[in-house]
Computed example of a mutant assay.
Amino acid sequence: MINLKNEALVSIIIPCYNHGRYLSKAIESVLAQTYPHFEIVVVDDGSKDNTKEIAQSYKDVKYVYQNNQGLSAARNTGINESSGQYLIFLDADDWLLKDALMINLNYIQMNPQLAFVSGGFRFFYDKDQMTSDVTSKVETDHYCHLLQKNFIAMIAAVMFQRWVFDSIRYDTSLKVCEDYDLYLKVARNYPIAHHTELIASYFIHDSNVSKGSALMLSTALQILDTQKSGLRNAKERHWFNQGQVFWRKWYCRIMYNEMAKVLHETLESNKIMLQALRKYDIRLYIQLIIKTVLLFFRIKKS
């Protein structure tokens, strides 16, 4: 285990925008850590709900308010307002498992040259209260593996050295995938490590930010493209090309499933009307089918 005599301070930065209803669980998960030397910085990104009241109800939480600027800006503010040697970014609707700090500190203090260490995480689905664990075994060529896909996925499963942010920050122009951009920039220049021990829970609910597959796809490809000019050898170019294929397949499949679900639900909800239209006015029924097909080709052409 780590040398607790060191008593290294870990800063847990929690950006929050109108997620006050989830914030207490995130804070409580930090307070329950088996490693005791931490600070909690909640960055309120212009919330209109009870975020301020929830954060300030905990005496050990540092509350920082800013006008709404987005997730990347809120995390950058948290960096500026924190003082720990190590940093963790915990979204307000997620939570840490009780040994999260201890586990990642053990890895990073045994390997102080690492810019960050990341681990596994657990999906928790609000709808059916089910869970699924996500672990990826990546022991070498971390930058190459990141070119191919974001195997880290959950930001709360990562512990950063503070010195990383002396030269690299979150890109405030990105609305999604800002963590993927950061991982690539850091792994391009510094050694990192990844393990399979579970660190955090990723809460899946109706108001998750990580929706909008078309934007996610275009942004992931945009981020990947920024790495192209710096590729150093055939191996990196291979993984880069693999990434181009992976992101297209991944998000196009998601978009297909989303649209197929909407189409199915629309047809099911209007089944009685469609049957009646076909029975009582076949001409209008055919016109509707033709209109649907023409809409498809118009979308395809544009």
Results as ranks from 00 to 15, higher is better:
Ile299Glu: 11
Ser57Trp: 06
Phe246Ser: 05
Leu274Thr: 01
Trp239Arg: 11
Ser47Val: 14
Thr266Arg: 10
His37Asn: 14
Leu31Ala: 07
Lys291Gly: 10
Leu96Phe: 09
Gln222Leu: 07
Thr219His: 03
Ser207Tyr: 12
His195Asn: 15
Asn76Ala: 11
Leu284Thr: 11
Thr135Asp: 00
Ala92Asp: 11
Leu114Ala: 09
Ala260Pro: 01
Ser173Val: 04
Lys137Asn: 06
Ala156Pro: 06
Gln227Arg: 05
Ala260Leu: 07
Tyr251His: 14
Ala220Arg: 09
Met1Lys: 06
Asn270Arg: 14
Asn104His: 04
Ala115Gln: 11
Leu146Phe: 09
Asn76Ser: 10
Ile152Gln: 03
Lys127Phe: 09
Ala100Asp: 06
Cys16Val: 15
Asp206Arg: 11
Ala276Asn: 14
Leu224Ile: 11
Val117His: 01
Phe123Gly: 00
Asp133Leu: 04
Val164Met: 10
Leu284Tyr: 03
Tyr35Gly: 02
Thr51Ile: 08
Ile289Asn: 07
Met159Ser: 04
Lys271Gly: 01
Ser218Gln: 12
Met110Ser: 13
Tyr202Cys: 05
Thr131Ser: 13
Ser83Arg: 04
Asn233His: 12
Gly212His: 06
Phe151Met: 02
Gly70Ile: 07
Trp95Met: 06
Val61Ile: 08
Tyr256Met: 10
Tyr180Met: 12
Asp133Lys: 11
Pro15Leu: 09
Thr131Arg: 08
Met216Phe: 10
Leu182Glu: 12
Arg162Glu: 05
Tyr107Arg: 05
Met216Trp: 06
Ile88His: 04
Ile14Pro: 00
Asp171Cys: 05
Lys300Ala: 07
Leu198Cys: 08
Lys127Tyr: 13
Trp250Glu: 11
Ile108Gln: 02
His145Cys: 02
Thr266Lys: 04
His194Ser: 14
Leu101Asp: 05
